[in-house]
């Protein structure tokens, strides 16, 4: 078996002042060419985990422990220059909001050229390279697009441009933070198809962050489910969807309205609201909402145990079907 491209172990993230845990000891691996989805609700720590890989945590939030090994380098100890070289070339990112991720007063062609310029020297082939990248993501009339400003494009087109920009330097790992959440479903479908196709073609690894289980069902190989700053379950898409072990994953899946159920039976709901990560402490964060909760669950935190195919952090997993 090959070595993982990215190996995150024991990663903790907390606020700097009056430390509050936001992500608590998260460990996972991404193999070369593998697509991993991170599913979680707002506040689960999924976005912070992704941002920490790029060294782009927001102000006032910092890595509190653990390591992020990318291609043999520990990114938590890397200097800013190394990180800058890595970003955009080896690891790149697509953001949720294509409206704000592009510079509104710079022509698109210029913005894409800048990406190349920041990592290598521009040459005669650079413009052709940018044009090819735009063509590849399905931008019509590429020459005209190069001379256009972001506001002249729709949200879907802008997200395509963002993807072209992220793929420009052939990264080994693409991190996508809910890039289709702001888009309409038919446009989302187009973007998902585009990303899936490009990933296979380039044999690129991908980390796809989302709150929507439906989006990742056919997009990624493995899934990580986060809740209140912890990984509660991880495994192959097949395992997670057909045989969820954690009561949270199970509850989440059965709370979604089915597409085929004719009787439209009552949705199974999870009572209560998501726990704040810093209030979890040494307990299971899902305990207050869990129907299987026992004294054990509030006495200590369950560890994530199992294999790459399937692991769960729960004292009372659902058991096999």
């Amino acid at each position: 078996m090959s070595n993982p491209l990215l190996s995150v172990s024991g990663l903790g993230i907390s606020t700097v002042q009056d430390p509050r845990t936001l992500v608590n000891s998260v460990s996972f691996e991404i193999m070369p060419g593998e697509a991993v989805g991170v599913v979680g609700e707002s506040g689960s720590g999924k976005t912070l985990t992704a941002l920490s890989i790029l060294g782009l945590l927001p102000r006032g939030v910092a890595i509190a422990g653990g390591s992020i090994i990318f291609n043999g380098t520990d990114l938590t100890k890397a200097d800013p220059e190394t990180m800058r070289n890595l970003r955009g070339s080896d690891i790149s990112m697509v953001y949720q909001d294509p409206m704000t991720a592009l510079n509104p007063v710079m022509k698109l062609g210029r913005q894409l050229l800048e990406v190349i310029e920041s990592h290598e020297k521009l040459d005669d082939g650079s413009v052709a390279r940018v044009e090819a990248a735009l063509r590849e993501v399905g931008i019509p009339q590429v020459e005209r697009a190069m001379e256009s400003y972001p506001h002249e494009f729709s949200g879907g087109m802008r997200q395509r441009v963002m993807i072209a920009m992220a793929l420009l330097l052939s990264p080994k790992l693409l991190i996508a933070d809910e890039p289709t959440t702001a888009l309409d479903v038919t446009i989302q479908q187009q973007i998902l198809a585009l990303v899936s196709e490009q990933r296979r073609k380039r044999d690129m690894s991908m980390l796809w962050i989302t709150h929507d289980l439906g989006v990742v069902a056919n997009l990624v190989d493995r899934l990580i489910v986060m809740y209140a700053g912890n990984i509660v379950e991880a495994g192959t898409v097949q395992e997670i969807f057909t045989n969820p072990q954690h009561p949270y994953t199970h509850g989440l899946l059965s709370s979604l309205p089915s597409r085929t159920d004719k009787s439209r039976k009552r949705l199974t709901s999870i009572p209560g609201v998501p726990q704040k990560p810093w209030l979890v402490g040494n307990t299971c964060g899902f305990a207050p909402r869990c129907f299987k909760v026992t004294a054990e669950c509030t006495a200590s935190a369950p560890k994530l145990v199992g294999s790459l195919e399937k692991s769960v952090a729960c004292f009372h997993p659902m058991g096999d079907k």
């Binding site: 879907g156 038919t186 597409r259």
Partner: peptide
């Protein structure tokens, strides 16, 4: 038809053909 086909679906898993483009262009 396109709208229904584009609906993210968690009941069909690991099938990349689910991501086939159903509708070209934009509104």
């Amino acid at each position: 038809k396109a709208l229904i086909a584009a609906m993210p679906d968690h009941s069909i898993i690991g099938d990349p053909t689910m991501l086939a483009r159903t509708l070209e262009g934009e509104v």
